[in-house]
Design a protein around this nucleic acid. Structure first.
Lengths: 110, 110
DNA sequence: CAGCATCCTCCGTGATACTG
DNA sequence: CAGTATCACGGAGGATGCTG
């Protein structure tokens, strides 16, 4: 058996998990989006937009794409006219919701 | 019966607690700082700086000041030469740490 | 050791308009 | 309804040097 390839620079093994997580859920809109998605099974694009005060199409779209790419959000498109798209949290992301609940409670007291 | 007074703009009463919290703990460095402070009773400035990879003096100082102003961090300065300053979490902030622990665990799995 | 003062850059974010 | 495509900008964040 040959020698296994040397492990090259696996930065992610050294990086702080909190910082890694923040790369995925950080930014101005992602946590608010996740939080809104967390109290409904599925949410439509415009419903999401209305419920998150101040967010623009640009940022909502981009944030949802980022979250989807990282596997936190599921996007289901129904082939209808007019278009119909439902967003929901993945199981991976569900495990994060308890943290958001704590933050929410904490936020009430400040 | 008279008409009830119109609700004037009490933004703080309407705002989502999560968003409020994020104004205080959001940004690139604040949560990493809090996280580092959470696993020690007190931490000195340069120790904090060394342990948070990539942070600059500017951002560490500013972030600590913001956190102190919002009552999340306690700063104790000892009158010595050379200077000696200890940072620690306030009780208010301690209540937030369980959320960071969840985020940390979650971050290990991504 | 623990910052502060400046200056500067970059890009996250916003505004606007348009579309299948 | 659910987005895309551009363009522009302000301010969060960074680099550098200095100090009590």
């Amino acid at each position: 058996m040959e020698n296994k390839p040397v492990e090259t620079t696996y930065y992610h093994l050294k990086r702080c998990p909190v910082e890694l997580a923040l790369e995925v859920i950080g930014g101005k809109w992602r946590i608010p989006i996740l939080w809104k998605l967390s109290d409904a099974k599925t949410v439509r694009y415009n419903e999401l937009k209305r419920s998150i005060s101040g967010i623009t199409n640009t940022m909502l779209t981009r944030s949802l794409q980022d979250l989807e790419r990282h596997g936190l959000v599921k996007r289901i498109e129904y082939s209808e006219v007019p278009p119909h798209v439902e967003y929901s949290l993945t199981d991976t992301c569900q495990r994060l919701i308890p943290a958001l609940k704590i933050i929410n409670e904490w936020g009430k007291s400040i």
